[in-house]
Amino acid sequence: MTEKTIYKRPKSWKGVHTHYCPGCTHGIIHKMICQAIDELGIQEKTVGIAPVGCAVLIYNYTDVDFVEAAHGRAPAIATGIKRVRPDRIVFSYQGDGDLASIGMAEIVHAANRGENITVIFVNNAIYGMTGGQMAPTTLLEQKTTTTQSGRDAHEAGYPIRVCEMLATMEAPAYIERVSAASYKHLPALRNAIKKAFQNQVEGKGFSLVEVLSTCPTNWGMRPLDAVNWLDTHMIPFFPLGKFKDFDGGEA
């Protein structure tokens, strides 16, 4: 009988346990990134931009070169790297507070210049590491430590749909929203992340994947309840799908 490997750790995964809370989806997203890097054979020329927040420690798990960024500035740093070393594969990994609040200017302008970079945007509708404050993507009526009676549009505005907003611009090559919560959504997550890297390898330009994610700790839920909440509350407001794809025409 011949042995057949049906699953193994990605080569670019450092093979250590993560520090993430039970039910957090960062680990799944990291792994999908490692798989894409392995499949494209780009480990030794990839440079990641580590964010501020829980996921700064992505560099403890992913075996590629990393540069740390201040909160929100990752797209500018990625731009600086890619412009001077266009043969490198450059990606940023950013949360919703990082990308859609303090770093809104940087992401909009990197997208508008069509920088040939890959952005993995993790949207869990809350500030995780600082302890569960309101994010720009926090849903209306969602309770956070700074919206204790629920987010009120009159006080705090509405959740921002980043993909829809960036898709209004001419330059971006590929924008898709996927989910990392339910197993049924994982093939789409995996394909989207790989495509976002593949696009850069092929010089197609700015690619962003928004990944809806759970934060059971700061949502105050058990992991399974968090998955269900994402499916029933986040997806209706943040619909999954492609918003822009040069390959397949405008989505």
Partner: peptide, 26 residues
Amino acid sequence: GVYLQAESELAASNMLLGAAAVGERV
């Protein structure tokens, strides 16, 4: 070489950081 006009001084200085982080004279 490369010249790029950033969207702000915040962005310009972080682009500078990125280019320096990969060892270029910037």
